[in-house]
Design a protein around this nucleic acid. Structure first.
Lengths: 225, 225
DNA sequence: CGCATTTTTGATTCTTATCAAGACGAGTGG
DNA sequence: CCACTCGTCTTGATAAGAATCAAAAATGCG
């Protein structure tokens, strides 16, 4: 199912969308695994993710794929930011997105751009110089930051539970690993009681400090941005 | 030797620099291996590399380093672009830089930002999914694009000669490899007659097409930007 | 020329990929 | 309700690629 964002009408069934005359914002709901087609650069199509999860990825000749970034609620995606000749975007879970007027929120775009670059650089560090263990620890912490419900009970010191919007294969494509390696690291972290999970996609962080130590110094700079 | 760009006065000996009252542009020469200290974000310090080569890099806890990008003549470096808490910049060869007024060239900064992001994403692809052979081939082509003299004789079909501004260890830190692996790939390419060199830093591309094939589809998107 | 740095090359080890098989869970239809 | 299937996940055995360790060769410099 392809959603052409240019037209803004080819939305799936279960979709809330205001009428054409309405002022911004307009909402759209995407099913899981829906490609998001931004128009050619220059049209200034910009959207904000309200809910769900979007992956920005590139592909190589023989089927190799790398997910460049995982975008959770609040993140901005714009043709002003990314080079669409090389990047594709896809929703990993069912997602709700909002179209925003780029010209009205120049500052927002600017901040999003800086965050994108900052994260890309931190991710390059991860891909170039971190071990599999460090990569997975980094990923778990980043995903917890982006997808954990803010409503955690205060008594639960440090324990965060969240639903992974990516499956093992996606995490592998994000971290430059194989799904088997990712699975092994998750199992190892579970054995070491750094995380806990019964279902593979519902993760509880049991020892955040240890994970942070494993993840290495250069945590995603995105937090501060 | 530290060059604090804020003040713009702590320049090395062999330095051409106009007086304080002069209008833009102002030039500065940097010796090889001079760290470039940009001020805290917000001051809009922006510079253009006129000659030479600058590396943008990050460091990890235990001495691991990753060069995020190699900047040749024409490239822009600005505190508006990069997060200076995590990035450092250093000249790899003696370089000439020019300070520009970011407010006057908003469009230039914008294009530079997009190029930076585009290159960061292509580099992430390289680090995450390319083999050592593909990485080195990609690097040689990118460096040729950035540092080969444009004055190549027309008869020399496809043959480009240029001086590498990086040594093997730098290339390794850029490509997420070790210097031994980089050296081995250079030797292999030499044996296969894809490149030629007598001195390790003066490289001639003998078979650009083969290199491009090895480098894989997603060549640096930077060219078009 | 001699010294320090860089590069090359070789031998070995280690991490992760690859190949393979089984376990688990969700959904389907009998 | 239960078999059946499909997709995902886990785990194990093995292989491949790059790192590491080590030493020699080349280069540049004082």
């Amino acid at each position: 199912m392809f959603i052409n964002v240019t037209a803004g009408i080819a939305a799936p069934v279960h979709c809330r969308q205001s009428s054409t005359n309405d002022p911004l914002p307009r909402y759209t709901c995407l099913a899981a695994q829906s490609p998001i087609l931004l128009p050619q650069s220059g049209s200034n199509t910009t959207l904000r993710i309200l809910d769900g999860c979007v992956a920005l990825y590139q592909e190589l000749s023989n089927g190799r794929r790398l997910i460049l970034d995982i975008l959770g609620p609040g993140r901005i995606l714009s043709d002003a930011l990314i080079d669409l000749r090389y990047c594709r975007a896809i929703s990993l879970t069912s997602s709700r997105i909002e179209f925003i007027d780029a010209s009205l929120e120049k500052d927002t775009i600017d901040r999003a751009m800086r965050q994108m670059l900052s994260r890309a650089q931190a991710h390059a560090m991860l891909l170039g110089r971190k071990t599999a263990t460090e990569r997975v620890a980094t990923a778990i912490l980043d995903l917890a930051d982006q997808f954990a419900r803010p409503s955690r009970m205060p008594a639960n010191s440090g324990k965060t539970t969240f639903t992974l919007p990516l499956m093992r294969a996606d995490i592998a494509d994000w971290l430059g690993l194989t799904l088997e390696t990712v699975s092994r690291r998750f199992s190892a972290f579970k054995r070491a009681r750094l995380i806990a999970f019964d279902h593979p996609e519902i993760i509880t962080i049991r020892d955040r400090q240890a994970l942070e130590a494993l993840a290495g110094t250069s945590q995603y700079a995105a937090k501060a941005a």
